[in-house]
Design a protein around this nucleic acid. Structure first.
Lengths: 207, 207
DNA sequence: CAGTAATGTTGGCAGTGTATACATAGATGT
DNA sequence: ACATCTATGTATACACTGCCAACATTACTG
């Protein structure tokens, strides 16, 4: 009807609007309480409109998770870039960035890793190409650290998995509320994740 | 009516039956797809009967998570006991047990840590007394390792957090399907988690 | 400028969590 | 033995959910 009020029958950019609004909703109520109908209401469309852009709820959540993996890749690689040539520092800052993102967006992190998305057995193909990107950055970092003679000459994949597990575990403990009181604020988290990563590099055993 | 067929009006032990049946359902369909009504049907009672034993769905899930934390404590402490006097080995085997449990029960692990349960801000009080038990075992282990002069003289809490994060991260990556193809089978997982923990102890840096 | 594809709406269905009122049975005190 | 209280289970109802099918409107394309 009248375009002047901005109310067109077609929304114009519903796809992106839905994702943005969904992220807001998930931040507010957690990935578990998120509903498509509330999302539609928030976006100002009918409750079935989202189905024109996403096959089903799971597809929407996958899209959101994918954006999460993208920003994870961005932030970690950006952190690494700032300390080019210093693999030790790179490893630490990459980890800090990882954990900080989890603190910023605990609900999205839970969505990405918590099992809310149906990934039919091995997800190796779907959205995880994006997750692999983040991991690949870590592998490269470690490889270069090995070649500079700073990191031990162990299997690269193993070293990468260890660092990833460490940081990921810390992130999940924080988002799960297990470290409440210990790691709530950003400076606590920076400090803690840096210390923990340093420990991984230097080892726990007396030498 | 007739007791002979075993159909009494009162179930007799519905509380425990519900938990057991719920665990089965969650193992089958994941914590996300689990529903109270299906559970009631499986237990052979009306769909509101569970409310006589659990305040709401969240309370039921909390109870299940608590059993999860109990078996986690049991298994890790049992693993540690088998290598009493050898803190290094204890640390490794505790971690292996942790990860193995996650492989055994990925859905329950996701329920415990994935954000399916509403823990109103800091959960420090609720079911997490049980989670703290598992952590406390780790703390003791590290403390004794420090006193034997095997582990470095760093803050115990920090060392414990590092080892917990490492193992927890590996567990969550496995349950999330991120390590599909790398850590699906039990011997792979044993091997990997032992290697990763050894790495944490010996450090990544060249010495 | 027709016709077709893309995008949105309405209405409906089965399934969900949970509140309320009611039914039954085990336990208890006399 | 019996009345009564309380624990436990049922029936019904409501608002909400994901999703399907039929229809409406608009944008795009020859």
């Amino acid at each position: 009807m009248s375009k002047r009020s901005g109310e067109t029958y077609h929304h114009g950019n519903l796809h992106d609007t839905l994702i943005a609004a969904a992220i807001e909703l998930i931040r507010d109520k957690g990935p578990n309480a998120f509903s498509l109908r509330e999302l539609a209401k928030k976006a100002g469309v009918s409750h079935t409109a989202p189905y024109r852009h996403f096959k089903d709820k799971n597809a929407l959540l996958s899209a959101i998770a994918e954006t999460g993996f993208k920003t994870l890749t961005e932030r970690t690689q950006n952190a690494a870039m700032q300390f080019d040539g210093d693999p030790k520092r790179q490893l630490i800052e990459t980890g800090v960035a990882y954990v900080e993102l989890a603190l910023d967006s605990p609900e999205i992190t839970q969505l990405m890793f918590g099992g809310f998305i149906d990934t039919k057995k091995c997800p190796k193909e779907n959205l995880d190409s994006e997750a692999d990107n983040a991991f690949q950055g870590l592998v490269n970092l470690i490889e270069s650290g090995k070649q500079s003679g700073i990191f031990r000459n162990e299997e690269t994949e193993l070293l990468a998995l260890a660092t990833w597990s460490m940081v990921h575990g810390l992130a999940m403990l924080i988002t799960g509320g297990q470290l409440c009181g210990i790691a709530d604020e950003q400076d606590q988290v920076r400090n803690l994740s840096a210390k923990v990563e340093t420990l991984l590099m230097e080892g726990i055993l007396v030498r």
